[in-house]
Amino acid sequence: MFFKSLCLSLSMLSLLLGTTVQGAVESTKKVLTFTAIPDQDQSQLRLRFQKVADYLASELNITVKYIPVKSYAAAITAFRNNQVQLAWFGGLSGVRARQLVPGSQAIAQGVEDREFSSYFIAHRSAGLTPTANFPQGIVNKTFTFGSKGSTSGRLMPEFYIRQHLQASPQQLFKAVGFSGDHSLTITQVQAGAFQVGVVNYQVWESMLAAGKIDTDKVQVIWQTPHYTDYQWTIRAGVDSDFGAGFSERVQAVLLAITAPDLLAQFPRSGFIKASNADYLAIETTALQLDLIQP
């Protein structure tokens, strides 16, 4: 029995190898696929962006698909490998993606993204109070960032920490964590697992509005200065794949979003034009922190 099963299984597997190595067949139908960085509430991402996909499909008159990804890096990889041609990136992920696929363009950003910021939040056990200036008291506390590749949860906060305290987070804090996303940062600081954390201000505000935050336990102690964040980036080569002027069409369609229901998915009050140049500051900062290569 042992040997017979083994021999049969052998033939099954050769069959498998035949099928997988062959890989997916290239589809001839043009489908615009897009993704978004999983910055918060991943369980709702598919729901949120399916609405966006439906809108784009009806406006652009082609099939539009949304694929969910698990990490910032996965979103960038999908973009790089042409698995997606359009993506809702954060500041840093956008810079990385455009560096990997030269010729890609930032085409639109939320109105709020021009003046984005992060909140430093603290558990009450840290004994920190809100300040207008950088909170020097966070030194020697336990501290958590969001995702390693996040602009508002990692890049900009680390930049301000280094700027004000002249040392790396690992040297400054008793422990440094990377929670993975913004909602998780809030959960962990609220539970006191970390004393201090840093989050995307919008995620904080929306969780606060949803009643998910106990302000007796965790509060905002400092707001960073403004920087530019999220944007829609379109991949180089779409104009030849989908027809000349396709990027402009997509840009126009995105800028034309006015339905409150759609805007609430991001959440943004509206979209405005963006360009690669808007993210030069982010790029410089990322270079300084060795998060991208020249």
Binding site: M1, F2, K4, S5, L8, S9, S11, M12, L13, L15, L16, T19, T20, G23, A24, E26, T33, K65, I67, N81, N82, Q83
Partner: peptide, 23 residues
């Protein structure tokens, strides 16, 4: 063990398809 060939066949049948184009 003796049902394994059957399971393998069904597994191949049920594999999710991927949009990824091998290149």
């Amino acid at each position: 063990l003796w049902l394994l060939p059957l399971y393998l066949l069904s597994a191949i049948y049920f594999l999710p398809s991927s949009d990824f184009v091998n290149d």
